[in-house]
Design a protein around this nucleic acid. Sequence first.
DNA 1: AATTCCGGAGAACAGTTGTTAACTGGATGA
DNA 2: TCATCCAGTTAACAACTGTTCTCCGGAATT
Lengths: 208, 208
Amino acid sequence: MSHTLGIRQAQKQKTRQALLDAALGLLEEQSLSSLGLREVTRAVGVAPTAFYRHFRSTADLGVALVEEALGSLHPMIQNTVAGARSSEERITRAVELIAHHVHTQPAHVRFIARERHGGVQPVREAIRSQLGRFAEEVRAELAKDPESAGWSEDDLLMLAHLFVDQMLVTASLFLESLEAPEEEQERVAQLVTRQMRLISIGRHHWLD
Amino acid sequence: MSHTLGIRQAQKQKTRQALLDAALGLLEEQSLSSLGLREVTRAVGVAPTAFYRHFRSTADLGVALVEEALGSLHPMIQNTVAGARSSEERITRAVELIAHHVHTQPAHVRFIARERHGGVQPVREAIRSQLGRFAEEVRAELAKDPESAGWSEDDLLMLAHLFVDQMLVTASLFLESLEAPEEEQERVAQLVTRQMRLISIGRHHWLD
DNA sequence: AATTCCGGAGAACAGTTGTTAACTGGATGA
DNA sequence: TCATCCAGTTAACAACTGTTCTCCGGAATT
């Protein structure tokens, strides 16, 4: 199915990816709204004008980064939420997944946390849209759970949003403790696990 | 007690406040890391160099804005959490307080949400510190509640952080619905109320 | 083999930025 | 009254920004 790209398109995608990577690196110490187009091209080693061959503006590049950071995460979350027998196991798996992802893709996580409420409207919108999809997918998985019997669609979506937000809080905390000693990271893991456990308990008794 | 300031110091504080106000306005459409010093002075109508009489840099100004936005909020939260007879009343009062504050100080709320994970380290640190104080104060109030009997200090602080984070989620949602029709704002209020209610239920059954 | 296509380079544009130094004039305190 | 102080001004610096237009050379197409 996958068609072999011509030399030309392959080179184009290569520089495009180089621009995305360079931008992601530069964004570790600043926000997207202060990221300059020349700054990015300088980091890659191409002429400033080459930028326009790939993106209309840095805001446009930001939207592409949102896709890269969150687009491939949907199946992971699906599997994590779905393939668990108990609530406790679901929590453990979720925390482990998040911790692992923060360790392997810290720049992506930082970018999302930073730009979710950042100064670039199209990027905020793109993130909002992706998180909305996550919430909807979590809701669908929760609906399959026998424990969700008697729950309204509205309440299920409410709980799903609570879980998604809590995932971001968790990711952000892991990110801050990334340079800290191992024991501090373990402390964070214990904290967020108990928080999700408390939410899970609230879910159990919601219909009382 | 309050000493009447001389003409000189009064004028100085006046321009200082004008700089803070102008910056806060400009930050509605961008992040602090892209805010220029000249941009701020131009908006106020003073020479660029006058900026240095008040702040070392825009990052310094950002830290001052954190104080202004969060410093005066401590007694409000204290009163809201303390002066409630039931959990349900506490939730209602908290949601009303947040909604009111978002309507009266939207720029402050936006600034905090934006810069909490923003690109300026000293500002992130200042916000972190203030939120830590909030969590500690909420913990102290929760500790007084008879329902907290049997809770460990650690678990109380865990719950306090959960509440503080949920307050920010709530404020952010209200902020996004600020331009939306009244019915949408009511929908948001219902959503966040149910989320806090679920957390509150989790608290009730934590020791089971 | 000849032609078109197109990602990238180069140069130049006006406009912006942070920071320095030296200066002004009214409030302040002796 | 006179000297001091100091918030704000003016001018100038090199360095940077986004954007336009023109051009090049190799890949793609015919």
